[in-house]
Design a binder for these strands. Sequence first.
RNA 1: GGGCACUUGGCGCAGUGGCUAGCGCGUCGCGCUUACAUCGCGAAGGUCGGGGGUUCAAAUCCCUCAGUGCCCACCA
Length: 716
Amino acid sequence: MKELPKVYQPKKVESPIYNLWLRSGFFNPDKLPGKRKKSYTILIPPPNITGSLHMGHALNSLSQDILIRWKRLQGFKTLWLPGTDHAGIATQVRVEKELKKEQKTRFDLGRKKFLKRIWQWKKKYGNIILDQLKKLGVSCDWSRTRFTMDDKYCQAVEKAFLHYCKKGWIYRGKKVVNWCPRCQTSLSDLELEYKEKKGKLWYIRYLFSDKRQATSDKKRKYITVATTRPETMLGDTAVAVNPKDKRYKNLIGKKVILPLVNREIPIIADKLVDPKFGTGAVKITPAHDMTDYEIGLLHNLKIVQVINKNGEMTKEVPLPYQGLFSLESRKKIVRDLKKQGFLEKIEGYLHQVPQCYRCKTTIELIPSWQWFLKMNDLAKLAIWAIETGKVKFVPKNFEKIYFDWLKNIKDWCISRQIWWGHKIPLKGVEDVLDTWFSSALWPFATLGWPPPSSKKEASLALKGRAQKSDLDRFYPSNVLSTDRGIINLWVTRMIFSGIEFMGKVPFKNVYIHATVLTKEGKRMSKSLGTGIDPINLIEKYGADATRFGIVYQIMGGQDIRFVEDNIVMGRKFCNKIWNASRFVLGRIGNFKFQISNFKLDSKNLTLADKKILNALNKTVKLVNKDLESFRFGQAAHKLYDFFWHDFCDKYIEMAKSQITNSKSQKKTKKILLYVLLNSLKLLHPFVPFITEEIYQRLLIKNKKKCLMVEKWPNAI
RNA sequence: GGGCACUUGGCGCAGUGGCUAGCGCGUCGCGCUUACAUCGCGAAGGUCGGGGGUUCAAAUCCCUCAGUGCCCACCA
């Protein structure tokens, strides 16, 4: 045996070990050794093809890798399926940025050339994250890598869409929708981000059209409305007050003249109006506000669109304002109102301004023709899944977010006017589907749904594989591990899609991992310069140290304040594992023990022997328990304490003297090797490289090709 | 505006009714003892955010206040 270096050198180990795993084929469930009847499946949340690895991915992938490696050791037929998401708007925006460097827009290229450009981009950069994940040591079955725009996946999307059509759940309608003037597309509510901005509240007077109408209060010649967006007043078709508001009760039904436009509009009553806000009287612009739109529908108001899809004022407005961008026209309108005496006052106002979640442009609300998916029945399915416990959230409190959204559900606007995505499979429609429509099918579209329609096709599809299809064998998956930010955007939609198309929920557990913040508690973000690149950590400390350091911090909280100190700890721990192994290997020499049959009879055991064997047993039980309930950090702490303090500090020290005694020598060696081997197994899901490297150097009988497929220790 | 969470030694965190509140990093002192100085041994350091309550007993349960992070929301 070669002498081991005193210090563990991850760089020399990681790449050869990863190649060993790849060559073994054991990432692929069909190539795993032994009889493995039960499957254990995880589908990776497909990263966007625009992305590169950040701490969130690292954290999430680690939880999944730990689970998969643990279950693989426990003898399950494990599948961890990787893949990427075409990420409609995100990718399109990314490539548009590239084009901008050449002073071009997508419209300059035209749809066909632009799409070609995106495919090129995808080919070049589409798998960056997956490649980076390999450095972390993840054990995905790369032979099953999927992309949400693979041919087969496109079929699934089309089939799902047509299925909804047949049910009559898809309809086209002209509604006020969120519109991104830069992306030139509609967006669902979930695709908005709100940013707090300092704005103003303008108080504007609308004069009564017949001054004598206000007879009860002779001084009252006008009604004042407050607005944060004065430019939309050009599209006002009513003023609304709360029916219970005494101040305005006698004005309901009267008419006012819209300043600058000179249109006569009615004063109406609607309970949606909050009497406490502003003056209690609100201008109603059905074309450019959700609430106003709803009020407009109820009161049969005319919809006057004054802002177009580029964010410019339309021909519906008086000539001086036509063609101006909305913010320019705002300035001019305020100036004109002031000049003409309609502006009562201006107040400062802090409000949440919606912006596009991909390009951060301020959203306009604009009436347009879109496709919608009726959500009533689907929402009920999703609610049912959680209420009956078919799907469980960990931590449980996230179910609230889920229910809150579902119980106030609106129909889902599924059409987008971007180019990159799944085209709506109907004639004459250029729109593509919301990227989340396709992600919603991920749990089964990746496994071969829709199933082949003929037997011939079926046998073709199964060529070279086991008899049963992946869909039969691996659906539903066991765990979905994801970020809390996409619970409704993605998780909810997978759940109802799974039930609708497969008749079964897509996964049993939804594990919501912690969000990684900086040490100061700020969000990690590249643009803020607060991001930490896991790849740098791997370079500096090694993959195992990084893994252990991160996992050590996953204690179940919603947030993790990341500190590099823990990675330092991880590195020290790896070194400890390395040296303890060096000691054991050195003392045992070339003797090959039969470890698998090693029985622990209590005769001939010293107190130290008993203690370490008991501690090992206890650790096995506790680690199992922790992992079953996704308590990754707690498991890591227990392993750390056991290995360092029980094994190294105590037992190895005792063993040094026991081993000099000819009576206890052999047993001590056996126990050293036994505890080391089992420790390696227990630690493997957390620190796979170093444990595999050491395993490869062990002299034991019945040695497996890889530690990765060894047998997880049973607690005695 | 509503909701979810968090607040424990210098820093990051465990601990969810009961021994003198633990761990990692850091700090200080002593040790290169033949697995490891990325180590060992020892030490200092906390009235568990403030206030109130329940209990024989609270970091741990309840109320309240404050700070922090996040999510949701049609106050124009």
